[in-house]
Design a protein around this nucleic acid. Structure first.
Lengths: 334, 334
DNA sequence: TGGCCTGATTAAAACGTATCAATCACAATG
DNA sequence: CATTGTGATTGATACGTTTTAATCAGGCCA
């Protein structure tokens, strides 16, 4: 219970508190034998540094904040894993904030980050308003956008090219001989949905087809359930498209189930491709073709940029990194 | 950039720093008009409380630590969601630590928690050694075990009865007329796997059968890929069991795929049931029967216990809560 | 009027660390 | 021998808040 402080350690080792602090923060500055004595004292007393005192005095902490839209989505889970690994390698702790798509919760999380005086924030913004990020930056908190292109060049951002991804998906469907193509998507406000659609249209145009041919089925959510509802919607019509491009794998898995249950064969009757390449894409009964994104890497690189900005504020050059997605062909497309 | 402190607010509002602190922490102690003045000053200056200074002086923080085994597993994601919601309702922030099953990483995370002087820790321990938790408790950090029964009655714990769950699953298979039953499981060291097995054996005994009949197929991991490998293993033998109980849904989904690809009909040839009832269980082509656990609730209740222990250390009574799982029957069993 | 109570406010002292100028011991140099 | 330099250590201060005891302004009662 008796919380042991740096002073206790100093007394035990027969040195001043300042020396103990040096052992902790710049071990190379202190002579070998004293360092050994101090380290022994630390071990014997079970001392652990008081992070808050350290933060208070130093003016900054060894934590970063990570704000994501939906921690239940495997995409963000993978990103978070990358963030955590890199942060932990560099001695930083991660405070996780889940906004669940709610702007209110996002703001509350950012407030917590500010109170904790995090060194920096990684955020996948839930909308396009840059105001609250500006507020953080004014406070000297570095910000890196994740899976979102930068609004200006004065900040770091990492993203994956969704336009390219959309083009890859539809290009693959076209090469398979698809005639009518449907695009099953989520809310129009989501940037990723728009970009993937643009890519799809580009692929049509590149094949000498009219982009307006793309038949859009928009759903209010991007879940497996929504995907199945989309299937019911499609099946109620007289003719099915030859191929379907779903804006994410959850939609695609729901769609797959809906089609198979109705006796539609995949890929013989309809080709189907998803997006994200989540684990379950390869585990479904008809394994799902998909667009793979370097999610884990996305998290790692974003964290690296953030920590570089924190640790070397003078030499740091803001970067906007755009990864490229990959096409993964499996059984659901011909 | 100019970090605005409680003093600046005090000056602006024409009061002393102590009064500002009172407005922040016990608003009822300060007269209405002064409070209004202070609140206005806070808003105008954009003041946000320095969490570290507060923690340092108060001796404890408004954060809790959550240490899980695998944040990529939907089970833990749901738990984490429950934790976060409850914590945030009570004004606490959550620091997430992912041990990935590694004892080293778990210890590193606990050290971070100790440095941050978290108010308490929620942990799903990665092994049975209680030593490191004892260490935390000596430091005055409350600990609640999650999805793990308490080792003694001097601590709180929340768990779901895995023995009952195993019995439910196999009982259901037996009622469906199953003769030979297989149990597809993960590493023997995992407590959940053992408990579910025990439940399965109990169900067999209760039906007047020999528990030793249960055919065990143990895999080194509990992933969909491992499940598919288990299917290959089974198919290489001359006869298939009538029914299979998989220790989690990922194994079951992999098994399902392996069986269907080989032309085995589910549930006509083989009944199949999983465990956890993750989202994808209902979305697979043959929807999966499973055992549902109140995961989100688990997280909420664990957090509630923890915060009660923190906020009312004198009146707090340690509790060991055991939830009961539910049987969810879908298409994969007859 | 003087004494006492109540409620509101303040002044000052911590909390545990990091930092920086100052000090020290001691060797090397002129 | 006096001086300078070097590397190691120390002492003192400040970080921004919470908290406790002390002060203050009125109102009430005798």
């Amino acid at each position: 219970m008796a919380t042991v402080s740096i002073k206790d350690v100093a007394a035990r080792a027969g040195v001043s508190p300042g020396t103990v602090s040096n052992v902790l923060n710049r071990p190379e500055k202190v002579a070998g034998d004293t360092r050994a004595r101090v380290e022994a004292a630390i071990r014997e007393l079970g001392f652990v540094r008081h992070g808050s005192a350290s933060t208070l005095r130093a003016g900054h902490s060894r934590t970063i904040g990570l704000s994501v839209i939906d921690i239940g989505n495997p995409f963000f889970t993978d990103v978070a894993a990358g963030v955590e690994d890199m942060a932990s390698e560099r001695g930083y702790a991660v405070i996780l904030g889940n906004s669940s798509g709610s702007r209110l919760k996002e703001e509350r999380n950012l407030l917590v980050f500010a109170e904790q005086r995090v060194r920096g924030v990684l955020i996948t913004p839930s909308d396009e308003d840059p105001g609250r990020l500006e507020l953080l930056r004014e406070r000297g908190i570095a910000v890196v956008l994740v899976d979102h292109p930068a609004e200006r060049s004065s900040q770091c951002a990492v993203a994956v090219n969704d336009v390219t991804g959309g083009a890859m998906a539809v290009g693959h469907l076209l090469r398979g001989g698809a005639g009518r193509i449907g695009y099953v998507t989520g809310p129009a406000a989501i940037r990723q949905c728009q970009d993937r659609r643009r890519g799809a249209e580009q692929a049509l145009a590149a094949a000498g087809r009219d982009p307006a041919e793309l038949r859009e089925i928009a759903m209010p959510a991007m879940t497996a359930k929504a995907g199945q509802q989309a299937a019911e919607k499609l099946l109620a019509e007289d003719t099915l498209p030859d191929a379907l491009f779903c804006a994410n794998d959850l939609l695609a898995l729901g769609m797959l189930r809906g089609l198979l249950q109705a006796g539609v064969r995949v890929p013989d009757d309809v080709s189907l491709i998803g997006y994200d390449d989540i684990d379950f894409a390869s585990a479904s009964t008809v394994s799902l073709s998909s667009i793979r994104q370097p999610t884990y890497q996305l998290g790692r690189v974003a964290t690296e940029l953030l920590l570089d900005e924190c640790d070397n504020p003078d030499t740091h050059a803001h970067q906007q990194i755009m990864f490229q997605p990959d096409l993964v062909v499996r059984e659901s497309t011909r």
